[in-house]
């Protein structure tokens, strides 16, 4: 068994109103970053996981996303990286 560090991005589902993202975009425009379009605020989790290989570590974290980490009604998730811990 090896230790892995699995990074997950959880973001609001596209099309759903994201007031936090809008507020951040507004603040960036105020600062002069006029090139900024939509902003979405989500969560970034780093999970240390013990598994036989990277594929198993990823599969396990996907199940965690389905069952707890992401809300299936409002959020999407993606595995950003799986690296040896």
């Amino acid at each position: 068994m090896k230790r892995f560090r699995v990074a997950v991005h959880i973001v609001p589902r596209k099309g759903l109103l994201d007031p936090q993202g809008k507020a951040v975009a507004g603040a960036l425009h105020t600062l002069g970053f006029s090139s900024v379009g939509d902003v979405h605020v989500g969560r970034h989790l780093v999970i240390e996981e013990t598994a036989t290989d990277a594929a198993h570590a990823e599969r396990s974290v996907r199940e965690m996303c389905t069952r707890l980490l992401a809300n299936p009604v409002t959020e999407d998730y993606e595995i950003a990286s799986v690296t040896p811990a």
Binding site: P12, L16, L17, P19, Q20, A23, N71, V73, T74
Partner: peptide, 16 residues
């Protein structure tokens, strides 16, 4: 809602 007893989800107020 999180327990699946009711439909939908509750998110941050639109006004923040």
């Amino acid at each position: 809602v999180e327990a699946g007893l009711l439909p939908g989800a509750l998110l941050r107020n639109e006004s923040l």
